[in-house]
Write a protein that binds this DNA or RNA. Structure first.
Lengths: 246, 246
DNA sequence: GAGTGGTCTAGACCACGAG
DNA sequence: TCGTGGTCTAGACCACTCA
């Protein structure tokens, strides 16, 4: 039942073999696409298609202007729900580096509904791109009402805590956190930023945090690569018969 | 962050608009790829690339030899986390039909770790496939220790409540629910059962519920189509300064 | 500037579906 | 047989990285 062993699959299988048998090792660069196309005697389009298969499988990473690289085995990312910090497990901390870009803007589009503010009310956006070592880890766009926005958030941090601690500084304690999780294809910008295939789904998390009065003090749009992310939520039920809700 | 307004995205955006505004209706066939390529004045390869984007988004279905078709709009599925019922929003109830297959088996593989039982201890599996109208809705594999398994679960129900109410009958009240959410490509069986493309991610939810003693009383493996599912989690924080945790 | 991947063209030929 | 999508070619030109 193999009606069509197309050339790109034959080539992908061959390169996959070379990776799994160690002929090409993790972190190494593959020959250039032009070279490989010539080696396999196919057009560049076909060869790129073959590499695309391996890219979807997470075996190969493409870096514009540099080449195709064999990826290191993936560390999994664990997102912890509930609005608590830390939001990613300690194991993932090792080499996490967060760069933040701060922009003042006015509420528009879905932000109006998420934050429960009127159109054009002033907001501050914290655009966070984090890397684990040299590989992209996650994207976060955090929006807070301008008057609650902290100052002095560093443009580069070694972990999210620096950012989240600053964010918590000027705002009332959280009373309710709502998180919406969905899987969707990445936008072109997200695919570029996370260096993933545009066919690989991302886990998109929309987090809205409110204080005790019901006022929304923070809305966050998080994007995590779908091939290595788990989102973890724990709910405790307090029973009426006892107090040992823990 | 708009590094690349490539033609295929412009075309995909345009066709997506025509679908969402009703210029092209659900079930209709798009013009042939050659025709569209000529309309947009691009090569067939570029046009196919544009359609590929819509295909990944689940908006368009490609049928070899017939054409590209606009998919019928799918009602979104909202999964409610926290172990509470209902688990899907009332709007989705309208025509939900659940078929259940019950199997007794022994703990093996990941089930041992999830349920915290020893290998080969007796379990009961409730394999639930639900449909909304004629289209598949979700898959659920629910595992409970055999001694907690209810009897009299009907093989066909009009909603999940019938099943979950039965499950709650013979077990102690829940104290903690842990839910792990991830996005991954469907297995071939899941793709067949849910009738989705094998390139479209599913939202996979692993739910583990424990009673007050920490004993795991239920483990559920849920699979929902990624193109129409949101998982919603709400966390209430009880502050130390007051009791208005709500 | 040299070398790399990214996008795109204008075709060709093959495989599938329906009449 | 005809029209459809599926695969592939042999280039072209652009964008990015690095020395």
């Amino acid at each position: 039942m193999q009606p069509m062993p197309s050339r790109r699959h034959v080539i992908a299988d061959d390169i996959r073999d070379k990776i799994s048998t160690g002929q090409i090792k993790a972190g190494e660069r593959l020959p250039s696409e032009a070279q490989l196309a010539s080696d396999y005697a196919v057009s560049t389009a076909t060869l790129r298609n073959a590499l695309g298969i391996l890219h979807c499988e997470g075996l190969v990473e493409k870096i514009h202007g540099k080449g195709n690289f064999v990826r290191y085995p993936l560390r999994r990312i664990t997102y912890l729900g509930g609005g608590l910090t830390p939001r990613t497990k300690p194991s993932a901390y090792s080499a996490l580096r967060v760069s933040v870009r701060i922009t003042n803007l006015q509420a528009h589009g879905q932000l109006i509904g998420l934050l429960g503010v009127s159109a054009n009310s002033p907001l501050t956006e914290f655009f966070c791109l984090s890397h684990e070592g040299k590989s992209p880890h996650s994207l976060a766009r955090i929006y807070v009402p301008h008057e609650l926005a902290p100052t002095g958030v560093p443009a580069e941090s070694h972990c999210y805590e620096v950012v989240t601690a600053k964010l918590a500084e000027f705002r009332p304690p959280l009373a309710e956190v709502r998180e919406r999780v969905s899987a969707r294809p990445p936008t072109p910008e997200e695919a570029t930023a996370l260096r993933i295939s545009s066919t690989l789904a991302v886990l998109a998390i929309t987090r809205v945090a409110a204080d005790r009065t019901g006022r929304v003090v923070e809305a966050a749009l998080l994007v995590l690569p779908g091939d290595r992310t788990d989102a973890l939520f724990t709910t405790h039920h307090v029973t009426h018969e006892g107090t040992s809700g823990e």
